Computed example of a mutant assay.
Amino acid sequence: MEKKYDDSYLLEYLDGALDSEERQKLEQELKANPSLRERVSLLQFAVRSIKSKGYETAVKEIQHDFLKQRIENKKFTSVSTPKLENKVRPLQFWAGIAASVALLGTLAYGVFLAQKDGNQLYEANYLSYEITVDRGVAARENQLESLYLKGDFKNMFQAIEGEPLGAFNSKELLLLGAAALELDQPSEALHYLQALDTTNARNETDNFQDEADFYIALAYLKQEAYADALRRIEKISEDDRHKYRSSFSWAEILSIRLKTLR
């Protein structure tokens, strides 16, 4: 697909802002490109949700109910009003208004985020891994922890130079993966984090698995590998017990899903 078909361009199409020639070319591309059609459909869903008649009607109903409440609570009114029924408590009005505003804001934010690249999403969600030093750990692990705590990430890799991947335990793999991300090396981070992921799957363990999921997702975002990032993020968000379940918002997930269709 041509690079010009970014989210801003597609939003202009949905807004009717393209000239007839551009619109015709894009619609021809839509007929031939299922992935582009799906992407436009998702953007259209978000835009329609914001502008949809259904939500306008819901807001009008809330306003009408609120007006009824105001009128019924007055001892008199200077104008003749029809009989008003089904009195609603004020708390319900405000809850409905708040819910409507929150939903519209979330959908609008999702469309906005769709225009951000993987690096921007990475920066927005990145958290440095924090460790607590354990007593009685192996000498090498203690050395890696000490260097990590000092922020001396480059020397961590010098300290393990020449050692095979299978020589590291789960915590060491996590520390090395986190250190690689601190050095802005997502490919190197995946090298260690995926080894941790594979070890857990093979041994049916979950040692630092939550951390591995989170940093693997971030590393994929950094590389703009959106499909891989989305799979890991969906795994995180679907697990009620996952430590990082709330790290990615619904709007950010929608944004990443849109990017997989480019």
Rank of each mutant, 00 (worst) to 15 (best):
L196A: 05
R257V: 01
L193H: 01
F112L: 13
L183D: 07
T132D: 01
K53E: 12
Q209T: 00
L67S: 11
E163Y: 15
G151I: 05
P90K: 10
L176K: 02
A17E: 07
A139H: 06
A219S: 11
L181M: 12
F93Y: 08
E2N: 00
E85S: 06
N125V: 06
F153P: 03
Y122D: 09
S100W: 05
D213V: 02
S247N: 03
R140P: 02
V111Q: 03
K171N: 04
P34V: 09
Y129D: 04
S255H: 03
Q69P: 05
Y5W: 04
A227K: 12
L10S: 00
K25D: 02
A108D: 13
A58W: 05
Y126C: 09
I253N: 05
M1P: 00
L218S: 04
G96S: 11
K83L: 10
Y122V: 13
Y220I: 00
S41K: 14
A98H: 08
Y192A: 12
L181N: 11
D197L: 04
N125T: 08
N119D: 15
E38A: 09
V137Y: 05
I71N: 11
K75I: 07
E72S: 08
G118N: 09
E224N: 15
L149Q: 12
S187C: 08
K74L: 11
K74V: 04
E224G: 10
L190V: 03
W94V: 14
R39Y: 02
A124C: 03
E27R: 02
A139N: 08
Q24M: 01
H191T: 15
D65P: 00
K60T: 05
D184K: 12
H242D: 09
G16S: 02
E61M: 11
K154F: 07
Y122S: 10
A195P: 04
F153A: 08
P34H: 09
